[in-house]
């Protein structure tokens, strides 16, 4: 029997292009007044048309367009696509940072969402205090933090600096501490957004190994976004290929990676027509 832990049904997310809101109180009041009297809104942005698909039509675009999938317990799923394909939007919705416009998402179990490590670090506080605070922000209870405290300090290689205010840390130390905290407080479902690209090369390798170990041994579910195909292929068995807000492909990771490269090659041929940064690779 399939043990579904994440179920995403027909999720869409729309953003306005350019100015967010009208920006000024005056225009918002105008619109409000018009709505109140059921007149035509002088600042109206025409309603979205069904096709959207990332096209900047009418000042809005669909960052996600009717995306549906399911993820079972223990799966590790890589989400790939070019810049602006909707990967981060999807992760933000799953992390409950933003809400979708349409659709329904249901999940089982606790979620660790690492869109960034070290969120809420306070520079004046010691590494020790920040471990507790950051753990709290990640939803951990006090005894859980206590249990892993020594491991975190050891893994981060902070050592004797643990009681120094972290504003005195080097940026590498800060990142190592932040990542160690995150890695030790993983819940059953893990959402990762490129945070593995931290620290120097050796620490990155250490992080990857730690992550793999955590995922394999303890049956966690992983959702992973990265532009680095080798790390996606290493961590994941299944891939979701997003393009302009559509879910193009949902297949084993190697097939998805091949399709992604294919698209990349094609787009290189018609490079002139694509108005994208070159960092799609």
């Amino acid at each position: 029997m399939k043990d579904i832990v994440i179920q995403v049904e027909h999720v869409s997310k729309m953003y306005r292009i350019g100015q967010l809101g009208h920006g000024t109180l005056q225009k918002d009041l105008q619109s409000f007044w018009a709505r109140l009297w059921k007149r035509e809104d002088p600042n109206t942005l025409l309603e979205m048309n069904g096709q959207g698909g990332g096209k900047p039509g009418n000042g809005r675009f669909l960052a996600l367009d009717d995306v549906s999938f399911e993820i079972c317990r223990g799966e590790s799923v890589g989400i790939i696509g070019r810049n602006g394909a909707g990967k981060s939007t999807l992760l933000k919705i799953l992390s409950r940072i933003v809400t979708p416009e349409k659709g329904l998402i249901r999940m089982r179990g606790r979620i660790s969402s690492l869109l960034e490590v070290g969120t809420g670090f306070h520079p004046e506080q010691s590494g020790r205090d920040n471990i507790y605070l950051n753990g709290g922000i990640l939803g951990m209870k006090r005894h859980e933090i206590k249990r892993y405290f020594d491991e975190i300090v050891e893994f981060s290689e902070i050592g004797e600096f643990i009681d120094t205010p972290i504003k005195r840390y080097s940026s590498g130390m800060k990142i190592r501490l932040a990542f160690s905290i995150a890695a030790h407080f993983l819940a059953e479902i893990v959402i990762l957004d490129e945070v593995l690209a931290v620290g120097d090369h050796f620490f990155q390798q250490k992080c990857m190994n730690k992550m793999e170990q955590l995922l394999k041994n303890e049956g966690r579910t992983l959702l992973f976004v990265s532009h680095s195909m080798p790390s996606v292929q290493r961590m994941c068995q299944r891939g979701l290929f997003l393009d302009h807000g559509h879910l193009l492909m949902d297949a084993p990771i190697n097939e998805v990676a091949a399709a992604y490269h294919q698209q990349h090659l094609q787009s290189n041929h018609s490079a002139a027509s694509i108005n994208q940064q070159s960092d799609a690779a």
């Binding site: 049904e9 027909h10 799953l94 349409k102 329904l104 249901r106 999940m107 089982r108 179990g109 606790r110």
Partner: peptide
């Protein structure tokens, strides 16, 4: 896994629901 909302719900209830 094709979109198929007719999958019978498992024994466990959902912990988190995200809606508009």
């Amino acid at each position: 896994t094709q979109k198929n909302s007719a999958i019978p719900d498992n024994h466990l209830p959902w912990d988190i629901e995200i809606t508009p």
